[in-house]
Design a protein around this nucleic acid. Structure first.
Lengths: 333, 333
DNA sequence: TTGAAAGCGCTAACAT
DNA sequence: ATGTTAGCGCTTTCAA
């Protein structure tokens, strides 16, 4: 039989109310003698408080939900880590949910989390989500969206990364190093991040009075394969290109591959810049110059904002825009 | 005000027991008319069942805890994903905990998880754990250990990977390709996996009647830096080595780096084999030959075993040993 | 400084 | 086929 607060009360010869108070450090006015008796009983019996029962009355589970597309995507582990670290600081625990960018799955998790009475939710919404008058609208607990922006939902917090500016700075850097024909290999334009990075690229090109050339824009997926394929095309068709700005580091890795496969050299033959700064950027040789996303910080700050919303019982509408940082390594001539 | 089962009962003009029954699909003997009334009320009121209250009586939270050293370590996201997928199949949700290989933190999570009344725990125990007569012994709920083995605890499940055999096969492969001076750059021998891989290496060397040479064993950490440092040493001291078997892929990445930095070529100058098969092994050029760990499967099977233990209410002691696979790519001559 | 007791929202045994 | 009711283990007034 599980030992409960009643057992402790009996052993210590006090009431359950007293035990509860010392457990929760609301024991300023409990005599030291009583406190010791209680503590001793707890120790001896190996009492483990039942937080479910406590949640029942306090209406707090000290749990938050984290919904992301896929923890296997190298972008998210650091985000998750940031969330967990911040949550942990305030005694929260986090439930991890992978949505696979599937709106159905996302909705399912959204409602399970609410049934489990989590105190709040952090979500990186599926890029396929088009209708927001559904599950999202029904959410009555604190919510913060991350990374991908979502229109039409109210009463929620928002952490975003300034992708456009990150891209802009990267391309400007290339231009400052005398590159004039900068290709852009990007992820799908159905994703807002890809769109934003593209717009930053374009703006930098135009501001520098270079000609924007659609034929050296390669829209595809955020994968190594897409990087290889696009770069193969550039090299084999002998396109007039001196450098390439990649939508993310995976694409950049593919670009490296293609360049090496053709017996060419980074940055001598082509300069390359990536985006994200995942682990691989320091593994590639030469080390990849890339736009660093504050992944850990994204997670950390979103948890911070959420917890703030939870404890203030008020909705904190302020958006939080995080900026990127250009990490200059060795892939630009 | 939150709507509760009572409200639904009132609106539908039935008892809470009835509502409960239709909610839980235990409604074979509820008339169709009543069921419809209930369903309609639930729909109209936007009723969200309170699972905490239900856990209170059923003693099941449908939640499992997952304790790993660090989700940012590229080995774990796939494991976590496997756990979540299997858990999800049976309606379980998972709480993610990062221990940082810190026994204190691990113990803290172990007790929090029990307070939260999780139905079971999957843990990749800290390699620093030496005493098992502590928190571990006190655990009264289903538990399965993963990846790292732990002695002296009973009543738990166990998923292990045959590291020794994986290493053995890798080294044998190198030998079959006429390598005779195979260096081994490995992680810390405080970790059982490093020890096992080393023993596999040694066995392969000895079985082939090659001489085991301690001076080409480099024990350090599972990092790129350690790979660079060790390989630099090998090259700069001109050690008699024709190939290197690495304790993991990060080390192999460092080895590549060092080789490239010295203007040498993989595999022409040195053949290289890694361990784990994380994403980077396909990003390195040439593609890295490596020993693949079934990361996703490790997670999936551990969750499967755990859920089995949970639902059978009996402890399933059988260990489950997963094997590795040598993925032959282009880094061995 | 401490205890008694109500009640959180639900399920399950027992009635009807 | 459906309703009544007693808890589950805790916290929190309110009394003493």
């Amino acid at each position: 039989m599980k030992v409960t607060i009643k057992d402790i009360a009996k052993i210590a010869g006090v009431s359950t109310a007293t035990v509860s108070m010392v457990m929760n450090k609301k024991d300023e006015r409990i005599s030291d003698k009583t406190r010791q008796k209680v503590l001793k009983a707890i120790e001896e019996m190996g009492y483990v408080p039942n937080m479910i029962a406590s949640s029942m009355v306090t209406k707090k589970t000290k749990t938050i939900g984290l919904i992301i597309p896929d923890i296997s995507n190298p972008f998210f582990p650091d985000v998750a880590r940031g969330v967990e670290d911040r949550a942990n600081e305030d005694g929260y625990t986090v439930i991890l949910c992978n949505s696979d960018n599937d709106v159905e799955k996302e909705n399912a998790y959204l409602s399970i989390l609410q049934e489990k009475m989590v105190d709040g939710i952090i979500i990186s919404p599926s890029s396929n989500r088009t209708e927001f008058n559904d599950e999202f609208k029904k959410i009555r607990i604190p919510l913060v969206t991350v990374d991908r922006d979502v229109e039409n939902i109210e009463n929620y917090g928002k952490i975003i990364v300034d992708n456009a500016r990150g891209a802009y700075n990267a391309v400007r850097y290339m231009i400052s190093r005398n590159h004039t024909r900068i290709a852009h290999i990007t992820g799908p334009f159905s994703s807002i991040t890809a769109l934003d990075r593209f717009s930053g690229y374009k703006k930098a090109i135009e501001r520098a009075n270079l000609t924007f050339d659609e034929s050296i824009i390669f829209e595809g997926s955020y994968t190594t394969d897409w990087g290889v394929e696009s770069m193969d095309h550039i090299i084999e068709h002998n396109l007039d290109v001196d450098s390439v700005f990649c939508g993310n580091d995976m694409i950049a890795a593919g670009v490296y591959k293609s360049i090496h496969n053709h017996g060419l050299i980074v940055p001598d033959d082509y300069s390359v810049i990536g985006f994200d700064d995942v682990e691989i950027s320091e593994i590639l040789s030469p080390d990849l110059t890339t736009v660093k996303q504050p992944k850990y910080k994204i997670g950390y700050e979103s948890a911070k904002m959420l917890i703030h919303m939870i404890s203030r019982k008020e909705i904190d509408k302020k958006d939080y825009i995080l900026s990127t940082e250009l990490i200059i390594r060795d892939s630009v001539k």
